[in-house]
């Protein structure tokens, strides 16, 4: 077992006190090795952290998505539409879809509500006869104009940009609305 007994390693390595210049040399080399190690770690960490935060750096500008001709939305009704998010990656598949509630108030006044409840983001349903949006998760309820009617939601349903162009109702893509601490 005792292959590495330090006292029997050889006649040349007598235990002598290190001369001071040797001491500072070792100290220097130790610091260089720590520095180089830190540099190597940083060099590896940058691309890994980059992969982690990459989605935050991607700037996805608003894209207009056609969701149907205006006459598909009778005045006073609220209809579910589906559209594709801005610039999805190919392998997003069906997860690139977003739904929204389009309400036609008057002939040329459209409102598009997010389906995401402002409480915890669950998808709200439009109950046409009751004229209420209802959330299945914690019982949040909104009126037809998106204001809170009952339950825990801290603020009204968020809205998407909407326009009528080229004979189509178009919805502007947007990030999933995230309720902030300061929203109450």
């Amino acid at each position: 077992m005792n292959q590495e007994n330090p006292e029997t390693t050889g006649p040349n390595q007598l235990p002598i006190a290190n001369p001071p210049d040797n001491d500072s040399r070792r100290d220097f080399m130790m610091k260089v090795s720590l520095g180089l190690g830190g540099l190597a770690a940083t060099a590896v960490a940058v691309p890994v952290v980059g992969a982690l935060v990459a989605p935050l750096l991607a700037d996805k500008s608003e894209v207009w998505r056609s969701v149907g001709a205006p006459d598909q939305f009778p005045v006073g009704t609220t209809k579910l539409v589906r559209f594709e998010n801005a610039d999805p990656l190919k392998w997003a598949g069906e997860t690139a879809h977003t739904a929204a509630w389009v309400r036609r108030e008057t002939d040329d006044d459209f409102v598009v509500f997010s389906v995401n409840c402002t409480h915890l983001g669950c998808p709200v349903r439009w109950e046409a006869d009751a004229e209420l949006f209802m959330c299945p998760c914690h019982g949040g309820v909104y009126y037809r104009d998106g204001t809170v009617a009952a339950g825990p939601p801290p603020k009204p349903l968020p809205r998407y940009d909407v326009r009528v162009a080229g004979g189509q109702v178009q919805v502007g893509t947007a990030p999933i609305p995230i309720t902030k601490f300061s929203d109450g």
Binding site: L52, P55, T95, P175, I176, I178, K180, F181
Partner: peptide, 20 residues
């Protein structure tokens, strides 16, 4: 507070649910 929206986007890997 302050970093919430950033953390949420980081969790989802983007502005919306998607490939990432």
């Amino acid at each position: 507070p302050l970093i919430g929206t950033t953390m949420a986007r980081l969790l989802l890997g983007g502005d919306t649910i998607g490939a990432q």
